[in-house]
C-alpha cells in the first residue's frame, strides 16, 4: 500500500463515516472498510476509476470535485480525505473550505514540493520529477504544487486548525527539517 494511504489509515477512527475525494480505484476505502469497519463513500471523476472502485466493492460517486461539494451537508462525515489530489485541483481553496464544512476532520496528503530532491532539480534548472510527481511539466495534472509552509499558510487563510502532521520520505516518518527532508505530507485538519 502507498505510504500516504498507510499513514491515512492510522488517522481514521474505526466505525466512522468517511468521504474519500478522488478515490481512484478505491483501494484506500476498501482497506478502511475491511480493517476499520468505516462507512465509506468515494468520489471519482475518471470512468476507469469509477469502474475499478465498483470492482473493489466500495460506494463510489462519479462527480467533478472542481464543482465543489454542494450536494453534501455540513458535518455529514467524520472524516473527509483528499489524498494526492490537492495539487491537481484548479479550485484548491474553495475545495478545502468545502471539505472543512462537510467533514468534522479532514485528511489532506500531497507531494512536498519543498523536498530537497525537488529543490535540487529546480536548482539544476529543470522541473522536478520523482516517484510522487512522475510527470513531465507539459503533461502533469499537478497545477497547484506546494510546500509544507505553503499549505500551512493556506490552512491559516481558510481557518483550518492543523491537528496532526506526518511527513514521510521513502515510506518512513521524518521529524527533522520536514519541509526539506519529507517527500510526502499528511495533514489532519479541522475547521
Amino acid at each position: 500500500m502507498r505510504a500516504d494511504l498507510k499513514a491515512i489509515s492510522e488517522l481514521v477512527a474505526p466505525g466512522t463515516r468517511v468521504l474519500d475525494l478522488g478515490c481512484g480505484d478505491g483501494v484506500l476505502l476498501r482497506h478502511l472498510q475491511d480493517n476499520l469497519g468505516v462507512t465509506g463513500y468515494g468520489i471519482e471523476i475518471e470512468p476507469a476509476g469509477v469502474v475499478a472502485s465498483i470492482g473493489n466493492g466500495i460506494n463510489v460517486i462519479q462527480m467533478n470535485l472542481e464543482a465543489g461539494l454542494s450536494g453534501f451537508d455540513e458535518r455529514s462525515f467524520d472524516t473527509v480525505i483528499l489524498s494526492q489530489t490537492l495539487q491537481a485541483m484548479k479550485h484548491t481553496e474553495p475545495l478545502l473550505r468545502d471539505m472543512l464544512r462537510v467533514g468534522r476532520e479532514c485528511i489532506v496528503t500531497f507531494p512536498n514540493f519543498g523536498y530537497w530532491k525537488n529543490r535540487l532539480q529546480v536548482l539544476a534548472g529543470v522541473m522536478p520529477k520523482s516517484s510522487d510527481m512522475p510527470y513531465e511539466w507539459y503533461n502533469t495534472p499537478n497545477v497547484h504544487l506546494c510546500t509544507l509552509h505553503d499549505f500551512e499558510a493556506l490552512c491559516q487563510r481558510v481557518g483550518a486548525r492543523v491537528l496532526q502532521r506526518i511527513v514521510i520520505s521513502n515510506g518512513k516518518p521524518i521529524h527533522a527539517l520536514p519541509n526539506l527532508l519529507g517527500s510526502l505530507a499528511v495533514y489532519r485538519v479541522s475547521a
Binding site: Y41, M63, F72
Partner: peptide, 21 residues
C-alpha cells in the same frame, strides 16, 4: 439522479453513482 443519490447518502445507505458521458 443526484437527488436520489443525495437522499440515499443522507441515510448512510450503500449507493454507487455513475454519470455516463
Amino acid at each position: 439522479s443526484k437527488e436520489i443519490v443525495k437522499s440515499l447518502l443522507d441515510n448512510a445507505l450503500p449507493v454507487t453513482y455513475a454519470e455516463i458521458e
